[in-house]
Design a protein around this nucleic acid. Sequence first.
DNA 1: TGTTAGCACTCGACTCATTCGAGTGCTAAT
DNA 2: ATTAGCACTCGAATGAGTCGAGTGCTAACA
Lengths: 342, 342
Amino acid sequence: MLTKRQIAILDSLIQLYTSTGQPIGSKTIMNEASIDASSATIRNELSYLEHLGFIQKTHSSSGRIPSMRGYRYYIDHLVKPRELTSEKIQFINEMLGSRVQQMDDIMHQSAQLLSQLTSYTAIVLGPKAESSRLTGFRLLALNDNHVMAIIQTDKGTIENQVFRLPKSIKESDLMKVTNIFNHHLVGLPLNEVAKKLERDIPFLIRKHAANASDMFLTIESIFNASAEDRYHISGKMNLLDFSEDMDKKKLKSLYELLENQGDLNVLINHMQSDFDVKIGEEMNNDLFNNFSLVTATYQVSGHGSGILAILGPTSMSYDETFGVLDVLRKQLTHTLLNYYLD
Amino acid sequence: MLTKRQIAILDSLIQLYTSTGQPIGSKTIMNEASIDASSATIRNELSYLEHLGFIQKTHSSSGRIPSMRGYRYYIDHLVKPRELTSEKIQFINEMLGSRVQQMDDIMHQSAQLLSQLTSYTAIVLGPKAESSRLTGFRLLALNDNHVMAIIQTDKGTIENQVFRLPKSIKESDLMKVTNIFNHHLVGLPLNEVAKKLERDIPFLIRKHAANASDMFLTIESIFNASAEDRYHISGKMNLLDFSEDMDKKKLKSLYELLENQGDLNVLINHMQSDFDVKIGEEMNNDLFNNFSLVTATYQVSGHGSGILAILGPTSMSYDETFGVLDVLRKQLTHTLLNYYLD
DNA sequence: TGTTAGCACTCGACTCATTCGAGTGCTAAT
DNA sequence: ATTAGCACTCGAATGAGTCGAGTGCTAACA
């Protein structure tokens, strides 16, 4: 059990360290933090905090920096979202408030806002409606050899793709395929659709429209694309600012990871809580040892939930990050409700 | 006028420098290059080449590196595309040869191939058909409040975008707008379309479908998007390997520039010649002082021409870069002819 | 006259010793 | 329990010294 003073010291130390990036000594704490004790006393307390594993030295006579455990304690007990300046709030409102936009634009905007306001890297995931249903499937002949496939769900997502028509396919085959899809898939929840696409549909196609089985593969890939989470990442290059100790090779692997849907899925796993922080090694990936990932979920009632995430240095200012995320999350809930409304 | 030996020395020096990255001294040239002269003689020649401005020293007693002028001379007179290994050629064939793909996929593939084979950064621009005509415009009602606009040209490009319908708009308005577009724009070359979109159409809309003028703005932006060049960039992160001397700030500006269509347009201006190289300062942008841009054009008869470009360090191996570009350019011409054919 | 061996000279890169100072832990006094 | 005082530690910065790759110049040579 920590005393009040010990908590105050730990708090100040982390605040100071996250804003300067330098190890913090007893004198600095005495001067900068409002703690009524001499540097010698603070030294004793620091020694105790180190003994408990909350802080550590970089070398035997250096100042202290927070340890993994220290950050954990800070995040779980001490940090409070910092209020944004009214200018920043206004900025967010302006960017997300007014005009009608497309869903993708909104997500993209949000990611940009997050990365600009924090100067870290932002990852945004659109609202995921677990129970959305397929409401429409169309094949639209554009000309003799191009067809557009369009997929709609009741949650408003619309996916489309143009593909070239193999010569073997006739108008009548197109109709048949469309009918099969409409008859067997439309109205079902998307996870059902995925199952049927794998099991029943290939059989039906072979039976009723054998010519079209090539085409089926294309269409299947569109369905898969529509089911995939779509990540919007902004401020990737900000990573350069807080990855000094990484060599080029690691940096490249890191960027490759950020390009890869699958890896992101592992990194950002859905969770219930409003906020969640993963610190360095908690991410189980050497690449992220000096990074932290702060994730916030936003809810759009009746339309599922989405995720906002900030990837920054372990030594980031958590209070500010929490502040930005909190404001944006609220604004986004609001914006999206409007989006679904009209 | 340079003697044969001087040319041979300049050639070797550049080859050696581009492969080692280190300043080259007289002894190295004597040992590595097949030049029948002592190091002292080579020193004399080097001194002369420096006097002419083809090479320079990094400090008073260092070896020589090529100067801007040296590179220019090398590229204009000495460099020969290096033959690719048969494995690499086969790799390219496999990636671009077989199955039917979408245009965007082909371009994306090409960019990836280029960056992987050169380990520099690749920029690919799809075939630009100067004289393509608008052949189709459709508005497809997806549901009560979403419409998809589809634009087609006779060169096979298809652009589409989904947008939300303002409430004020009725079915009949949609019809009217579609009619106006089909009547006044379809069949025209795209540059004519752009003009009319600016001049005549707004007036017609106001007259016949006043409610739809909001919608017109959206549709106009789709047209603009369809007219835009679309750059495919791959291997951005390779920049990290050859930008050691740049600070974080410059690196970020550089990446921002690569994200920006407009800036890329300035950088890569269309030209006729098969190959073109811009060396460092020739690009008129401080950010590129230590980079070179090698561009190659490819022709698809009857379907316009496109561009392949490699952005690498000024000290890149030009012969290899030329080799890769040449092979890919030929393969691409072939692939695209097939694409347009069937 | 062109080529070459020989040599003094230059300058960056590297190593090693020294200094400086921020910070610590410990002890003894309050 | 707190604090002043002090010896001690260690990284960062500074400077002297060495090494070696490379140069230019001179004089000898084919």
